[in-house]
Amino acid sequence: MNSSFGHHTIHQFDEELKALHTQIIEMGELVLNQLCLSLESVKYMDLSLAQGIIDREKVVDEMEVSADKTICAILVRRCPKGSDLRQVLSASKIVNCLEQIGDKTVKLANFVVLMHTTDQVNTHYFSLEDIYRLGGVSIEIVQSALEAFEELDAEQARQVVQYHLTLDQEFQKALHHLIDFLQAEKSNVNNTVSQVLMMKALERIGEHARQIAELVIYQLEGQEPTHHLPDLVEDFPVD
């Protein structure tokens, strides 16, 4: 049951909720863009591209601060209730997720900078295919979660939650693959650790996107997000 910012008796309130929604869409677009660019910078070991991502992180942070202000103002002025309250609560958490995704894209960019400063631009020590594949899936998840948010589409949000499982599987696959790579002495321990951290960053990005999708469902239906306990399988235990 969603009143989706139409026809409050106080019209200004509609505008404020709509503005908050738009603000988050814009922040989401920027973060998604950062994510795509960060993968590209890894692919081509493009230093200036990586630097641009790190610079733009400031803008992401500013957007977070600005969204927080909007949220605070609505809470103070309107004391939202019902679906309005859920929208504002979700917004606050989604902003946080986006900020975290932003942080992770900077991690990827930092990795490119590190390679350059330590003169290890030779990427054949990495199994980059795995990074690309993971990256591709994480982009799709983030994109789809943002679409679900923009359209307030609970169905699509549920698909995102489901699709997120793919990322977990890809992550596990990549870990195993990396071990083979290391055992075949195609890589050294340094590079392997870097690669694991990159993969982990991508896996976290997917997880934040899943949270966004669950928040969309909460906003629309009031259904509390479920807390997922990791399945006890023979895979690597990751959170």
Partner: peptide, 13 residues
């Protein structure tokens, strides 16, 4: 936060 009835939702919001 999450009333069951549409009418309640409309009133409180």
């Amino acid at each position: 936060t999450n009333p069951s009835e549409e009418l309640t939702e409309r009133y409180i919001t």
